[in-house]
């Protein structure tokens, strides 16, 4: 038997989650044929970056300053919630010829 309070509590939680995500944007960046598109993207703290790997090989999105390292298996998507402002150069550890920039505003 489910306690009576559980449903309103879940509804409230869902509402809170929704209002948070309404402020934060999701920025999509595609990796295809070893190219990063767009090679320069802008975002704000709290936004989510979604890298979509369309290649048959794995890539990474690795910040040169060491802030983050996101693994991107073949034909999969990897996400990152931005926590720090700054202009971050990033590359793929497996294919260092893949380079891009992410501008994170406060």
């Amino acid at each position: 038997m489910t306690p009576r309070w559980i449903l309103p509590a879940l509804t409230a939680l869902a509402f809170v989650a929704q209002s948070i995500s309404a402020h934060a944007a999701t920025i999509q960046i595609t990796m295809e044929n070893l190219a990063v598109l767009p090679p320069e993207a802008s975002a704000k703290i709290g936004d989510t970056v979604e890298w979509i790997n369309k290649d048959i090989v794995a890539h990474t999105a690795t910040a040169r300053n060491g802030d983050w390292d996101v693994m991107l298996p073949p034909n999969k998507t990897g996400t990152l919630v931005l926590k720090k402002a700054g202009t971050v150069d990033y590359y793929c550890r497996f294919h260092p010829n893949m380079k891009a920039v992410l501008k994170i505003e406060p």
Partner: peptide, 16 residues
């Protein structure tokens, strides 16, 4: 052509 880009990546990775 895709293979070439992947292998160019390997070349740079190996150099590193």
């Amino acid at each position: 052509q895709t293979g070439l880009k992947i292998f160019q990546g390997h070349e740079q990775h190996a150099e590193q």
